[in-house]
Amino acid sequence: MSLVRLCALALLALPLSAVAAPPDDDAYAEARGIVDDLQRIVAPTGVQETHTVRIGGIDQVITVRGMDRANPILLYVHGGPAAPMMPASWTFQKPWEDYFTVVQWDQRAAGRTLRANDADAVAPTIAIDRYVGDAIELIDWLRTTYGKRKVILVGHSWGSVIGMRVLAEKPEWLHAYVGIGQIIHPWSDETIGYTHALDAARSEGNATAVGELEALAPYPGADLRGGRIDAQRKWVIHYGGHSAYRDNSDYYFRAQRLSPDYTPEDRRAIAAGSTLTLDRILGQWRSVDFRGLQRVQAPVVMLLGRHDYTTPSRPVADWIAAVDAPFKHTTWFEHSAHFAPIEEPGRTLMTLVQRVRPLAVAAGDGAALVD
């Protein structure tokens, strides 16, 4: 199987080194312990919990972390559909925890959730509607368990498809929806990313890239399965459309080795989840189209990577400019592509604290900040 294919839909490219621990993986054990101690929440007002929650008929794993239980809950819905952010969240999340109670969720067939279930039993349930149902069930569980009326929902990449559906179907449970690497219409995104990569390859005189990309024409065509999306992603990534100014995203995958939340076995499960979910979701990809969603009932904030050609930002900017919402805001990240929280962590934090948290505070969820 193509290595890019393992997370192509998420719109992540997953090299083998990221999912198969090296023979000396125990060499990372001490480093994981150090990170674990640094990340430990010791404030008496805080929360640091791992739960296995029965959602959608299967066990699903979440972590809940924050310095003050009174803060708003922020649920991070990762990409993939089986590329959990939990094992890389230590790279950026700790400052968020001063202002939010942050929930990382390994979705159906992703990482630790995959390991908690029978993969053969989960396989027939891989459907966009089921993931949306899972998210709604999880939000309800969080509201009940932590005594909150609403949550902040962050959707990243594939997770933004789930997030937009929840925004449309359960806005009354959201203080705000935040999109990162937002998807509005996949077929438009694929065309923009393809054109970017082909133009860059021609400009550079990269005959190999030009030949491989031209062989896909017309792209995206009727179906992204059969390796077509893999070939496009290969060159989008190479030309900085996944991580700005880089020709790979190895830094993100290598960071997972130091996660105190993930064992080497958990990391190996990421590849298995991608294999299980990718073609099943791609087969339903034509149904995703938010261009007709012209009015929403909850605030919307979009974090747009200027260099993102994995899920291009221009269609998102056009959508949010036109949508009718009780509140809307766009922040452009000039030095980011698909990973704003990692590529520009300070700007991400400031946007969440200055633009998103006040929406929850105004609704009575958390205290206003004071100097």
Rank of each mutant, 00 (worst) to 15 (best):
H242M: 15
G240C: 06
P220Y: 14
R233W: 11
Y219N: 04
L224V: 15
L224D: 08
V236K: 00
R225F: 11
G240M: 09
P218A: 06
A222T: 14
Y239M: 07
S243H: 09
G226L: 02
H242R: 06
E212M: 09
A222H: 10
R225N: 12
S243T: 15
Q232F: 09
R233M: 15
G240H: 06
V210L: 04
Y245M: 09
I229A: 03
I237M: 08
Y245A: 12
E214C: 00
P218T: 07
H238L: 10
H242W: 12
D223R: 04
E212Y: 03
D230R: 00
A222N: 10
D247E: 06
R246E: 15
L213Q: 05
R225Q: 11
A222G: 11
R225A: 11
G241E: 13
P220Q: 13
A217V: 07
T208A: 07
D247I: 03
A217P: 01
E214S: 04
G227A: 08
G226E: 06
E212V: 05
E212Q: 13
L216M: 04
T208F: 02
A217T: 08
E212S: 04
P218C: 08
A231N: 09
R228G: 06
D247W: 13
A244Y: 08
G226D: 03
A222D: 15
E212A: 02
D223C: 03
H242F: 12
I229E: 02
G211K: 08
T208R: 08
G211E: 15
V210S: 10
L224N: 14
Q232S: 13
P220R: 10
H238S: 02
V236A: 01
G240L: 07
I229S: 01
Y245D: 11
D230M: 01
G240D: 12
L213I: 11
L224H: 10
Q232L: 11
T208E: 12
D223T: 03
D230A: 13
V236I: 13
K234P: 06
A207G: 01
Y239N: 03
L213W: 07
E212I: 07
L216R: 03
H242C: 12
V236P: 00
R246L: 14
D223G: 01
Q232E: 15
Y239Q: 04
A215R: 03
V210I: 14
Y219V: 05
E214N: 00
G227S: 09
G221C: 10
E214A: 01
Y239D: 05
H238W: 04
T208C: 00
E212P: 01
R228W: 12
P220L: 14
